[in-house]
Design a protein around this nucleic acid. Structure first.
Lengths: 123, 123
DNA sequence: CCCTATGTTCAATGTTTATTGAACTATTGA
DNA sequence: TCAATAGTTCAATAAACATTGAACATAGGG
């Protein structure tokens, strides 16, 4: 089922849901990593976040991030590629995403899962 | 007890707690109203929010807003005056508060308790 | 066709959260 | 001193949330 996960349209993205999504340290770390990647390939695989939590827990957080409109997933072969929905978010809530990401960067050493981000390499 | 409610210091304000606090529609409406008031008296009484929820429920949300560093309360006679901790928030998370408030203003008609804000007058 | 790698879904658990009304505290004013 | 006003605290409840492991689905490589 759910060959292509459903995402809200731009207009369906709601502020409280976005803030709630970003308030979880693990999801904040995911968004942060996706933002770092924006200058490079724009996309990351689920497996790139294995350092943050167990697989099923990550899938749960991915679903929330998708449902609230923060990121988009597309399926390529056996893996999922995800990217931030920056254009939609910037259109709906100008400056919000950058403020959150910059704040997270400033506090990187305090935010637990985020400070563990350097250790993305597994095995 | 708690003659003067305890507030975190500027440095103790944490990003996830702030985002979580702002993700609740009632608390977002409170912060929004406080922000509107910034150009005027800077402070509002608890009673000014009676349109948003019951008294005890409001007290619960006020406590959360205080504990996460979003607002400050001082006691004057029989009432409490509360204001946004804008300087601290802007110092810790530049641009965040404004982005949230502007986004809330844009979506004012969608955010339930916020659109009921005009009806602050009670009796 | 089977095996492996990548993720998701499901069920179960324990925790946190929002909401309510009743009881309580403290201050003001008659 | 008594009553009214302004808010908080407490206990109880129901809903939402995060986390875990096991089972499942899908694609690709031998």
């Amino acid at each position: 089922m759910s060959r292509t996960p459903l995402h809200p349209t731009r207009e369906q993205i709601e502020l409280p849901m976005v803030l709630d999504c970003l308030s979880d340290p693990i999801r904040l770390a995911i968004v942060y990593q996706l933002a770092q990647q924006e200058r490079v390939s724009n996309e990351l695989r689920c497996g790139d976040f294995n350092g943050l939590a167990g697989k099923s827990n990550l899938a749960y957080h991915f679903a929330k991030l998708r449902e609230c409109g923060l990121m988009q997933t597309r399926i390529v072969g056996t893996s999922r590629l995800m990217r931030l929905r920056r254009e939609d978010l910037d259109a709906r809530f100008p400056g919000l995403l950058d403020a959150v990401i910059n704040s997270a960067a400033k506090d990187a050493d305090r935010l637990q899962p985020l400070s563990a981000c350097d250790v993305v390499e597994a095995d």
